[in-house]
Nucleic acid binder design. Structure first.
Lengths: 194, 194
DNA sequence: CGAACATCCTAACGGGCGTTAGTTAGCAAG
DNA sequence: CTTGCTAACTAACGCCCGTTAGGATGTTCG
């Protein structure tokens, strides 16, 4: 929740909004509900936020930046393509696991942003995707991964990582590192040259 | 769209609702919008449907039944576990590809159903998941697949299949059979015993 | 102490929604 | 021609929403 925590009350608003947006959807969540969860009145929220829409945008943006930050760190740290892929997947699952609600808002509620805001998010997503593709390409070039359609494989990997917010629960029996590792194993077996 | 097409107008309503629910979300779609897309008035929709909620429920249910029907056919047809898995994945992608909008509503908008309706859908989903798990188990038993946590692997497979509605476009360069085949190849390589 | 500021309350604005009930118009059948 | 039915229109109900502007309250600082 970096960069969003300008005050304790603002942090609370973000937290509650994230939960409610995730569970009920952006449009089905009212400002009065968010306020009620904080034991204040709906009109009071506007002391802290510009609008409902801006609130959503900032939540989505914060998550996008978290994904980017972690991917950048993976790339910056270098290592073999296999290692980078493992770390990339680990980080990805970790971001989701840190807050399932945030992930849900990021993956789905962003669609309710206006056109300009959506374009910003789309660009961030594309940049993030490009990190993975770069890893796959370098693995192919180094011979660590079999030749493949790296665009499609990156979509496949991201698909399984992204959808996990729908069923994975960090408080369950499986910790996020083991989950990522399990995913990585199968993916890696599929990618290894033969 | 089986079982839902009681009249031409009803079919149109379903089609438009599906599109709008998919693109804007259930709550952000108004009955007046659905009506407007059909060049009638909002109040007129109630000659054909009981309520907005029931409309959503029936759309989601129709898709759930389509998934189930195709999975049942795969199992009924038998064959090796490998073949069944391939066909299962093919059918899954085919159902999504048949209507991305329907898939989006099924995978996400179902959350806006009431508690009782959700329970119905959840049960259908669980039954569907069980089809895949049964295939994986039989593959393990027959030695076609390596031993594994079949629950987790089924979630992994379903994750990549399910998320595809977010990026796959049937009118694009890749047809749904080739997509399913590409997914199957990597999955299978990961599942094969070593 | 008084002023400034932050935060909250509150009433209300302007607008909108899902749905209902009564009416109307067109069509088909007797 | 008359009657019955279907499907649409329409006005309105009952309720709700995001947001604003003015006021009230508590805290901090000079």
């Amino acid at each position: 929740m970096d960069g969003l925590q300008s005050s304790p009350r603002r942090a609370q608003i973000n937290q509650v909004a994230e939960q409610l947006f995730s569970r009920k959807g952006y449009h089905a969540t009212t400002m009065r509900e968010i306020a009620r969860a904080l034991a204040i009145e709906g009109g009071s929220l506007y002391s802290h936020i510009a609008s409902k829409q801006v609130l959503l945008f900032e939540l989505v943006l914060a998550c996008a930046e978290e994904f980017r930050r972690t991917a950048q760190a993976v790339i910056a740290e270098g290592g073999s393509a296999r290692d980078q892929l493992r770390r990339f997947m680990r980080q990805h699952v970790a971001v989701i696991a840190a807050s399932i609600d945030r992930a849900a808002v990021y993956f789905h509620e962003w669609r309710h942003l206006d056109t300009g805001q959506q374009a910003v998010i789309r660009q961030q997503r594309d940049e993030y995707d490009e990190f993975l593709r770069a890893i796959l390409r370098s693995g192919i070039a180094s011979g660590e991964f079999a030749a493949m359609d790296e665009k499609l494989v990156s979509l496949q990997i991201l698909s399984q990582l992204n959808w996990s917010y729908q069923w994975y629960r960090p408080e369950g029996p499986l910790n996020s590192e083991d989950l990522a590792e399990a995913f990585f194993e199968i993916v890696m077996r599929g990618l290894e040259p033969r």
